[in-house]
Amino acid sequence: MIADSARSTVWALVLGEVFASVLAAARAGSPWAFERLYADLAGQVTGYLRMQGAVEPDDLASEVFIGVFSGLPRFEGDEAGFRSWVFTIAHRRLLDERRRLAKTPHLTSDDVLESMPGDDVESDVLAGLEEGWVRQVCAELPSDQRAVVLLRVLGDLSTEQVAEIMGKSTGAVKQLQRRAITSLRVRLTSQSVPPASGSEITGAR
């Protein structure tokens, strides 16, 4: 059952052969093309920013897509390259936000965690959402490991693409993802319920 669920949520290149025409239409300024590109990637980009602990993930994702659409004339590549390019912009915007917040602290890490759903088990159960638990687990990972896992899972990016986005070598990315999976396995097998509080998003401040 888990296997079926996992298979059903694997990302795929949703546009496929029509990507070129959609991209050309978006460059020409067709609203439907913008809507199509946004609908295909908005959830993953917003999820990536949310899991990374962005203060305002929706607003930041909007800024990302504004930058994406305004930079379409400069983009060259296929759908996989487009996905990688979008997540590159998202990652850079996230780093910019962290630098900005480091200079002018907006919220403490405790404030961020308190604002997250999944702060306690009861709210998780009542809400029926597993997002809080996932976010809590991701928050326990170091920043680099979390970024690699999120980019690989949410962005459906290859090791090489993640390495290019993060400015690291492919070997370093493989090492990070291996450590991340190992940490997750230890964390998930030792504690079946998410911690109530006390976790901190490393690197977010």
Binding site: A6, T9, V10, W11, Y38, A39, A42, G43, Q44, T46, G47, Y48, R50, M51, P57, D58, A61, S62, E130, E131, V134, R135, C138, V149, L150, V153, L154
Partner: peptide, 9 residues
């Protein structure tokens, strides 16, 4: 984690 990325903002 993948399902969490299906909810657009």
């Amino acid at each position: 984690l993948r399902s969490a990325g299906t909810r657009p903002g």
